[in-house]
Simulated scan of single mutants.
Amino acid sequence: MTGSLDAPPEITRDDFAAISALLHQRTGIRLVPGKETLVMGRLSRRLRQLGIGGYDEYVRLLHHPDGHELGQAIDLLTTNETSFFREPQHFDYLRDTVVPRHPGGRLFRLWSAASSSGEEAYTAAMVLLERPPQGGFEIYGTDVSTRIVAGARRGLYPLEASARIPPELLRKYWLKGRDEYAGLMAAGSTLRERVTFLHANLLDDLGDLGRFDVILLRNVMIYFDQPTKAALVQRLQNMLHPEGHLIVSLSETLNGIPSHLRMVRPSIYRLPAGSRD
């Protein structure tokens, strides 16, 4: 079914199912019936840009072998809600418990596994700069959206995003924009040099990133079905150093997901030494 270019086209059940299936196959995110309005809201402008009158034509474009438009759709459909110092209990635990126990002798490594627009990774960088682990540290941030990763690398945010950043850290690590950057703040070089942002899909084998002391996987698995969650947790636990931590959001749990990880606090899981197969 096609619609007029003057008004947003309606999405049919079949077209919604096709888009949902492609998104699930590529990212693990499943859009359930009832999310049709969300899909139209996210994609209608893109259809107008392309001069496409209906979602049936757009679905055909999503199957193009070059994968370009599917990448564009993923960028538009993935949720990127985050903030600095979100769920601060996790950063308190990082500072007060994880860092003091780091043995030193090697680099402390933290991975923001669904880093969205970068606030989580930059928050971790501020915490670790204030309480540096023995041996130094590095942080990786990854996201499935190329557009969002590009924004995280720029490190530019509206000034109101600073509301949860302690004033002393704001003064120390952030720059206030001027002229064309008025109303914005920018991550200073001290922060930027500590964080590497990469485009990556959590459904892929990311073992080349190496092993980590902490993996943050917060507010991600709520979009996955149980088999996808189980496969992801299995892969991520194999990327932890012994005694490493996997941290999910306070609204999430690993209950019912087979793994070697043991809960030390709600939402915080540790890989016991010697437990990896």
Rank of each mutant, 00 (worst) to 15 (best):
T37K: 15
S117K: 02
T146D: 13
P88T: 13
P103S: 09
L38N: 11
L110E: 05
I52Q: 14
G188T: 08
V99I: 14
W111E: 02
R46L: 09
L23N: 06
G274Q: 03
I257C: 03
D14V: 13
P133M: 12
R178L: 10
S249K: 03
A231N: 07
I148W: 00
L175R: 14
T82A: 08
S162P: 00
F85Q: 09
T123N: 11
D208T: 10
N238E: 14
G41T: 12
A186W: 02
R178D: 05
F84K: 01
A186M: 15
D277R: 15
S112V: 07
A200K: 12
V59H: 02
F91E: 07
T79L: 00
R211D: 12
F197H: 01
L240E: 00
L50A: 11
Q72M: 08
A152H: 06
P158H: 11
E160V: 09
V59M: 10
E87P: 07
F85C: 10
H24V: 04
I11C: 09
S4P: 05
Q72L: 11
S251F: 04
T82W: 05
L170R: 12
V233W: 03
E252L: 03
R265N: 02
M40H: 12
M126D: 01
P33T: 05
D143K: 06
G155N: 06
G274V: 07
L254N: 12
G53Y: 04
K35W: 13
A113D: 07
V144L: 14
L191A: 04
T97E: 15
A186R: 15
E81K: 14
D15V: 00
G41I: 05
S44K: 15
R153E: 15
G256D: 08
L76S: 06
L5G: 07
G151I: 02
T37H: 15
L216E: 06
L61M: 15
V32M: 14
H90Q: 11
T146M: 02
L191Q: 04
I11Y: 05
L184Q: 14
L70S: 01
R194V: 09
L22R: 15
L77S: 10
R106P: 03
Y269R: 09
L156T: 00
G28N: 09
L110R: 02
S116F: 06
R270K: 15
Y269I: 09
L203G: 13
I148S: 04
W111N: 00
E160W: 01
L5V: 10
Q49H: 13
L216I: 09
T79G: 00
M185Q: 07
Y58V: 08
L43I: 05
D208P: 02
W174H: 00
E69T: 05
H241N: 15
F85G: 00
G155K: 01
R60D: 13
R270T: 14
R13P: 05
F224Y: 09
A161P: 03
R46I: 05
A124E: 07
A273M: 03
G105C: 10
Q234I: 07
A114H: 11
A73R: 03
A73F: 01
L62R: 04
V39G: 02
Q72W: 03
T196H: 12
D143Q: 05
G67E: 13
L217V: 07
Q89V: 11
G177H: 04
T97K: 14
A187G: 04
V220N: 07
V99Y: 00
A231I: 05
Q226N: 08
L129I: 03
E36W: 12
